[in-house]
Design a protein around this nucleic acid. Sequence first.
DNA 1: TAAAAAATTTAGATTAATCTAAAAAAATTA
DNA 2: TAATTTTTTTAGATTAATCTAAATTTTTTA
Lengths: 217, 217
Amino acid sequence: MYSFTEENYLKTIFYLSIGAKEGVSTNALADSTNTRAASVSDMLKRLAEKGLINYQKYRGVTLTEEGERLALLVIRKHRLWEVFLAEKLQFGWDEVHVIAEELEHIRSERLIEKLDAFLGYPKFDPHGDPIPNAAGEMPRFIYRKLSEIVEGTTVVMTGVSEHSPAFLQHLDKAGLTLGCQLKVNEISDFDKSVSVLIDNVRTLFVSHEVAKNLLVK
Amino acid sequence: MYSFTEENYLKTIFYLSIGAKEGVSTNALADSTNTRAASVSDMLKRLAEKGLINYQKYRGVTLTEEGERLALLVIRKHRLWEVFLAEKLQFGWDEVHVIAEELEHIRSERLIEKLDAFLGYPKFDPHGDPIPNAAGEMPRFIYRKLSEIVEGTTVVMTGVSEHSPAFLQHLDKAGLTLGCQLKVNEISDFDKSVSVLIDNVRTLFVSHEVAKNLLVK
DNA sequence: TAAAAAATTTAGATTAATCTAAAAAAATTA
DNA sequence: TAATTTTTTTAGATTAATCTAAATTTTTTA
């Protein structure tokens, strides 16, 4: 049985490892967990002793197989609760993350399996992120950013790579929701903003900053 | 913002205060919280400083108005989650308590109000206990025990005063559920066991031990 | 590559919640 | 009511998770 804190470290290491070739640095973890590097060093020693991470002093960390499995089980719980909050309790997709940060630590396997069934075994959370299975396995999709799509191409919005309430509320206001069709009309030479045709109905200008965080396929 | 531990102490003091004329003793709290009297003394000092309990050394404790309000809000959350677990996730009434012990500490007022709405504003939890409102107020019903009902009387089972899985599973096996009609046929002179007619259909012998923990009206 | 800068770890505290053992107060009983 | 027993509190530690400040290692740069 691991503490809330330990679970949060595993989850953070998992997210910071995505794409990275090297191990996650102490400072990156300190930033993400809002603690000091010294506190992170202490915790890394403990997680290493428990066999959850590969750690050598000054070298950064990676998750062991067991550590990754545990991280994905926490992420599974987080994402299932997000679906519950959005679909059953009518929370906005900008509100679910904060509450799920607490719910993800509730310890009951039966609870999460029954919740999964109640929700109809969803495959994605409200932000389009895939939900790991009960064994701690998650399909890895390769999404493209809207900012990388060439002019004239039509794609479907399938996710976001930024989950802050401010960003998600911005998308709400612009009427950009998961599943909408986006045709890239033109990319501005001046500021890289993207002119898109949404669902064949209306045209919208999307800033490069936003386009970088919209995942499409 | 109060810690899980503080919330649990408030809740425990609330339950131990029911019916009691005097304050709750340190030892009673140590028993209920599975800690030692010394630890309880420490915590009582802290809760008193925060204005949540009335405490004088060696004298036992009572909740202040604010302390009781907080205790009832925790109990509100506990009982609403129990309804969710039983009605939506199909957990047995013997299983919901343990999981709700964790869920009751999730901090989000909006969450609990939306959960309340989702459940249709239930007035009672799966054990027949009333659910406090959002202001921390709870109707106080005066229930009678089945063991106090005189022969010949017909009553309805409305609650239980013992919530252990073993007891609740025993009731399941006997087919005793909330809302069933109970006619007291005869009380044994020998062992005080009660012969009851259930829903006008079948007769069952209920031990005095069980009858003491069945609440009826 | 040597010096400077940045990153990381160690040393030594702190806080909340707990403990054991000992002291003190209250309650019981002879 | 005095002695004994029980209850409660205090004193002094312990553990997990954190901190600051200082020391150490690695990386960068001149």
